Amino acid sequence: MPDITWEAPFCQDASNCFRIGTDADGNAYIAVAGEESHYLTDSREALRALITDIKSGKADHLL
């Protein structure tokens, strides 16, 4: 398992929490809080683009 530095959990409400992490090789990770051993990974740029798109409403149709 890579050496991931996790940020504090981000929670919409008490039941919807996730964490974002990074490693020294420039990879980014996202996981459900408490389930960090089951993560998705991509480049930091890809994660930044995902978050930007979510914030701009491009993923609202998925909800």
Score class of each variant (00 low, 15 high):
I51P: 01
Y39C: 04
D13G: 08
R19Q: 14
T52D: 15
L50H: 04
F18Y: 14
K58T: 02
G57M: 06
D42P: 00
G57T: 07
E36G: 06
S37M: 05
M1C: 10
A14Q: 14
R19W: 00
E35N: 15
N16A: 15
S56N: 10
L40F: 14
A59K: 10
Q12T: 04
I54W: 11
E35G: 10
T22G: 00
A31H: 01
E45D: 15
L50K: 02
V32C: 01
A8G: 13
A49H: 07
S37E: 10
E7K: 11
A28R: 01
D53T: 03
G34F: 05
A24M: 06
E36H: 02
C17N: 07
L47V: 07
Y39R: 07
S43T: 14
A8D: 15
F10K: 13
I20M: 06
K58M: 08
D13R: 08
P9L: 08
I30W: 04
N16D: 15
C17K: 06
I30G: 05
I30T: 10
R19V: 15
T22Q: 01
I30M: 14
C17G: 11
A14E: 15
F10L: 13
L40R: 11
R44I: 11
A49E: 09
A28G: 06
S37C: 01
I54M: 14
I20A: 01
D3L: 06
L47Y: 07
H61D: 11
T52N: 12
G21W: 01
A28P: 02
I30P: 02
D53I: 00
I51F: 04
S56A: 15
A24V: 09
L50I: 09
C17F: 07
T52I: 12
E45R: 14
V32K: 10
D42C: 14
D53P: 00
